[in-house]
Amino acid sequence: MGFSTSGAAAILFVGVLVAVGIAYPVIQTAHEDRRAAIDDRDDRSLDLRNTDIELEATTYNDSSDNLTVNATNVGSTTLAVADTDLLVDGAYEPNDEWLEVRVNGTTGRELWQPGETLSIVVSTADRPDRVKLVTEHGVAATETGV
């Protein structure tokens, strides 16, 4: 075996080391990102299992054309009021158009703790047939025949 064969083997060996040195950090980062994504998915799944709401009362005031929706957080997950959606007869009612929002009778609250009641007042032209409240985790409660 001459010098040219040994030199070529050394160059190939160095090339393999450089390639592994470049590939390892990329593979390690991809694995860490995958692990973080799996942990996030598991956290969302746990929050979903621990979330539950009940519509306590949905009333419509004919004189003021206002609909009041009262729901209680009966799960063990704290919910964000801003991430709660309301649909009236299938039409989305944007949060910034709600006339009044109260959590346990207090305005200005951003979190809806377990056991607390959320009260939303919206203006509607007609008496609705169906009201649906959806939480940030996709858990919904529906009432028909308001």
Rank of each mutant, 00 (worst) to 15 (best):
R44P: 00
D33G: 15
E97P: 02
H137T: 15
R34T: 06
G145T: 03
V139H: 06
V139S: 08
V26K: 14
D52Q: 06
E97G: 04
E97D: 13
S119Y: 00
A80F: 08
L111S: 12
T107N: 10
N95H: 07
A140I: 02
P25M: 07
V69E: 01
A9K: 09
A23K: 08
R44V: 03
P128G: 07
R109G: 03
P128Y: 03
T29P: 04
E110T: 10
D96M: 04
D129I: 04
T106N: 08
V103G: 07
N95F: 12
D83W: 06
V103C: 09
L87I: 00
T77M: 10
N104Q: 09
P114Q: 02
D47F: 06
A80S: 14
S76A: 12
P94S: 03
E97R: 10
A125I: 02
E93D: 04
L17A: 15
G138C: 07
S45T: 08
A140C: 00
R41V: 12
G90K: 03
V74E: 09
G138D: 01
D39Q: 09
I120F: 00
T107F: 14
I11D: 10
T29R: 15
D40A: 14
L46Y: 01
D129L: 11
A10W: 06
N95A: 15
A9G: 03
P94K: 03
D89T: 10
D129R: 13
S76L: 08
L87D: 07
D42A: 12
R35L: 15
G105W: 09
W112Y: 02
Q28L: 10
T107S: 15
W98Y: 11
D33S: 14
V69S: 07
T29G: 10
V101I: 15
L67N: 07
R44A: 14
T106D: 13
V88I: 08
A23G: 01
N50I: 01
L133A: 03
G138N: 08
E56S: 09
R34A: 13
V69W: 06
V146A: 15
V146W: 07
F13M: 14
D62F: 11
E143K: 14
E110Y: 08
R34L: 11
E97K: 11
Q28I: 06
G90A: 03
L46H: 05
T124K: 13
T78C: 03
Q113A: 12
T68G: 05
G21L: 01
I22R: 10
A125V: 07
I22H: 06
D85M: 09
A9D: 13
D52K: 09
G145V: 05
V18F: 12
R127V: 04
E136M: 13
D33A: 14
N95D: 11
D85W: 02
P128R: 13
H137V: 04
I27T: 12
D43G: 01
P94I: 01
F13I: 05
V16Y: 11
T106A: 13
G105C: 09
T51C: 05
V74R: 12
V101N: 05
G75H: 04
